[in-house]
């Protein structure tokens, strides 16, 4: 974004809106077991918050996600997902079989924890990738 839509009204609205959007995103990710929601949806809402900041403040926003940060988030999300899979391989289970993870809980609760872990990984990957796509599509003409 070379020219952000910065103005006093947009700035105030953005400051008011973003914390609630973030809280709602965390709720959607964490409550995906009992209600509609999960990693994909929550990650998209998180990316919407970041893109809102990008639209209002442009690339030089003080808070928000940098490009390198978004790339790291995307890589980290896929790594978390695959890592939990390998972790269950390490504890003599099948790949992505969360029931064998050594947590002091009953098996079903351990599965819930494993599912929550990969939902967080998916949400990180989706957030990072959507922010990266937005950045790539709006970065043209930046060099000149």
């Amino acid at each position: 974004m070379r020219t952000p839509f910065g103005s006093a009204v947009l700035d105030a609205a953005c400051r008011l809106l973003v914390p609630f959007v973030l809280i709602f995103a965390v709720y959607v990710i964490a409550h995906g077991h009992d209600s509609p929601g999960g990693g994909f949806q929550g990650g998209t809402i998180l990316a919407a918050a970041v893109i809102l900041i990008r639209l209002v403040h442009g690339q030089d926003a003080i808070w928000g996600l940098t490009r390198v940060g978004a790339l790291r988030l995307a890589c980290g999300g896929v790594a978390v997902f695959a890592g939990i899979g390998f972790l269950s391989l390490l504890f003599a289970g099948n790949y992505l079989d969360y029931g064998v993870l050594p947590l002091p809980l009953e098996t079903v609760k351990v599965r819930v924890m494993g599912t929550l872990g990969i939902e967080i990984g998916v949400a990180m990957a989706v957030t990072g990738v959507l922010v990266l796509i937005f950045d790539a599509l709006t970065a043209w003409g930046e060099e000149d």
């Binding site: 994909f40 998209t44 790539a136 599509l137 043209w140």
Partner: peptide
């Protein structure tokens, strides 16, 4: 379909990037 929607968004992103290159 939940995953299909997200994959659709990212394929649209790649297609738009290709269109920008074509336009350049």
């Amino acid at each position: 379909m939940l995953t299909a929607i997200v994959v659709g968004v990212s394929t649209t992103g790649v297609a738009l990037a290709l269109l920008i290159r074509i336009h350049r």
